[in-house]
Every structure is written in structure tokens, then in C-alpha cells.
Design a protein around this nucleic acid. Sequence first.
DNA 1: AACGCCAGCAACCGCAGATGG
DNA 2: GCCATCTGCGGTTGCTGGCGT
Length: 348
Amino acid sequence: MGRPPCCDKIGVKKGPWTPEEDIILVSYIQENGPGNWRSVPTNTGLLRCSKSCRLRWTNYLRPGIKRGNFTDQEEKMIIHLQALLGNRWAAIASYLPQRTDNDIKNYWNTHLKKKLSNIQGNSSSDQENRYRSRGSNSSSSSETAVCKGQWERRLQTDIHMAKQALCDALSLDNKSVNLPQLSSSIVSRKPSSISTNPSAKTDQKLILPPPQTNQSTITYASSAENIARLLPNWINKIQKSSQTSSESISTTQTQNSFDGRFPSPPSEGFDKQFGYHNYSNISDVSQSVSPEATSLFQDESNPGANTEKAQLLPLSFLEKWLLDDANAQENDQDNLMNLSLEESNGLF
DNA sequence: AACGCCAGCAACCGCAGATGG
DNA sequence: GCCATCTGCGGTTGCTGGCGT
């Protein structure tokens, strides 16, 4: 029946997000919480569609996101989970809470796929295709014609192989890899394209206990960086415009390891002026933005006329919110540590 | 220095399930 | 039960920077 577009295409900005837009979005979500994305563009004045806002938040701005290189453990997890779950990136991402499905998907497509094909040769691509064909979106018409019984037999075979591979991997690093318990619902689930269960998609979310994270990783640091990355750039831009002759701040530095669109940590000049130190340290984040910076932030975070809320948000709220998030995650991780690897193996 | 190629990644698109009236 | 709308997901696109020629 023709689904209406998620937003009016006219006047909707597309393409990369600017730090200004990020700040506005984060500020709004901080106050109102994620969700109700439809109202985000109108309430913030952002010239973005609701989907774009949601995506930006979930894939980039959301606290607790780890960016940068994938560790060997994460890589192994992805490989085996992909074998187990297919291209259900959201489900895979639920095992790696610090990674977004988009990130994992990109990493798979750009690194792991090649890596695996190099290692395994053509035989693996056959298997890969088999798993891929089970994906909800990629099922061909002939694939969906596979009857339930045939499909389940094949799935059992696949799962047996995947379990084997997973056990192998676990035996290699069972001291460091915290694999979530794999409930039996994984092995009984059908791909949504075949499933007769209308709630098949919801089912995905029931599969697992809260996934475990790498204990050695401080989730806050990355989430703080997500936001903190914006601030120096934001302030730099302000300074640049108001003090174009100043040499103290390098606005043309190329980026640190995270994202080329954001500047590297500010130069000495910034450091002196705003007390910027090192955003990788949680306490430094909260100390790093001086009242001057905060006021600048407040003044400039409102390019649009409809961003009163964002304008009124003190930066300290933002920091507190991030800190609370970090603490909560830390507690979660403590709880999760009690889940032993043996429990997950026992399910096989 | 200029150009083209390629890899990586952020963002978009469209589909499908969930939800509420 | 139907319909409209919202949200989540996976596939794909296109921009950008690095590298080789």
C-alpha cells in the first residue's frame, strides 16, 4: 500500500553529521531519553529525519560504544556468532554490547569476510552462502520454499558445526572470553523469512541473557570520548571564528584513532585555555571543560530557533549522565562476571 | 604534483515486525 | 481484525583518505 516516507524529503539534510548536530542531538536525548524519534527533528530543530537521528545515536553517540580496532577476542566472537546466527548483526551485537551492529557488519564485510575466505578458500564460501541464505533479507524465493522439516534438519547440522567451532574457540581462550549463555532458543529459532511465528523478530531479543563484555574494557572511556570528541572541536570552531588570527589552537590537526571527522585532542593552547587534558581519563573529562567552555557550548549549541532545550542544558548534566551510565555498566559487568564459561558449554 | 584505484566506514534506503487507536 | 505509524534491522551506497603509479 505504499509506505509513506519517514520524513519529508524536502529540507531534510543528508550526509555526514556535524559536531553541532551531534551536540544538539545528545543534549536533547540527555533530557528526553532515546525514543520517540519522530519528534526529535521537530523538537531540536535538526534538519534530519527521525531515522537519521536514531541511527546517529545508536551507531555513534550512544554512551558505551567502543570504537577503533577490534580485538582478537571480539573477532573470534563475531566469526563464530556469524556462523551461528547468520547475518543477524543486531543479535551478534547483543553479545558485544560495546559494538554496534553497523560496526560489526562493516567489520565483517571489510575484514573478516576476506580473512576467512583467504584462510578457508572456496569451501568456506559455500558454507558462508548457506548461512547467508538463511538471513531474513537475503532469502531467495527458492530458499523460502524449503520446507520446515528440511530446513530444521539443515539448521541442526549447521548448528552442530557451529557449536563445534565455537567450542574450539572457547577452548583456546576460555580464560579471557566471556561467552554469554546460549539458550536453546537459539538452536530452535528459524529465520524470520521462513518462520511462521509472527513474533520471530521479537524472539531474537529473547535469545540471550545480557551479553557479557570484556572486563578489561572501560566502557565509559569510549562513551565519554564520543561526546568529548565533540567538545574540543566545537570550541575550536568557535575560537576559530572569533579568533581567526590566533595560532594557539590547531584546528587542522588530523584525527586520533577514532574518527577522521573529528579533530585530535586540542593543542597546548586549548589545554591552557580550557583545561583540556586527556579525554581518555574519566575524571579528566569532567574537569576538562571550564565554565568558559561550558558557556560557549550553551551559547553555540543552538543554531536553530527550536533548540531551547538543548540551549538550556548545562554541560555538567551531560557529564553526570555519562558518569552514571558508566557506573551502571560497571555494575552490570560485575554481575555478569559470575556467569561461568562452563554454564555456556553445558548448554551444548 | 596529479591522477586513479581501493579500502574503510558513516549514513541511507527499504522492508518487516511491533504497537496503538 | 484493520490500518496507520513507529521502530529495528540488514543490505547497499557513496564519501573520504591512503596508497601506488
